[in-house]
């Protein structure tokens, strides 16, 4: 998505990215980025929390107006909650899933070989389950 933002901006359309993967976006570099420090999935605010969702979009609008240079990063004031375990929980690898992941990779590679043979040239990133 950062690549799309850069392309739009290069061609004269100002952009703001709202996301939850700070390191990925900063590694690429985008004109304006609003970071929601949440588990991946709800960058615009917690599900069904209309007040929070409204505030986050207002902040994105403010960022559009205030940013003076590329790579401007702001953070929302919201946190997911007291429990920070979600940070370590994402894509966790341990003895409970190590073999399952290995088998999943094997199956995925077989599918990718088949897809290529079928002329399917597009593939998603590996997703967390």
């Amino acid at each position: 998505m950062s690549l799309v933002a850069r392309h739009l901006e290069t061609n004269g359309i100002p952009t703001v990215v709202i996301g939850s993967a700070l390191d990925v976006v900063e590694h690429c570099g985008v004109p304006r980025y609003l970071h929601s420090d949440f588990p991946l999935g709800n960058p615009c605010g917690k599900p069904y929390d209309e007040a929070m969702q409204g505030e986050i979009i207002r902040q994105a609008m403010s960022l559009l107006e205030s940013a003076e240079a590329a790579n401007t990063v702001a953070r929302t004031p919201f946190t997911w909650g007291e429990d920070c375990n979600w940070r370590d929980d994402y894509a966790r690898i341990d003895n409970n899933n190590r073999e399952a992941l290995r088998l999943r990779g094997e199956a995925r590679r077989q599918q990718q070989t088949q897809d290529k043979a079928d002329g399917k040239l597009r593939a998603a990133m590996v997703s967390e389950t």
Partner: peptide, 10 residues
Amino acid sequence: EVDIAILVPL
């Protein structure tokens, strides 16, 4: 005729 784009990766 978009003037500004908001991009939201999941």
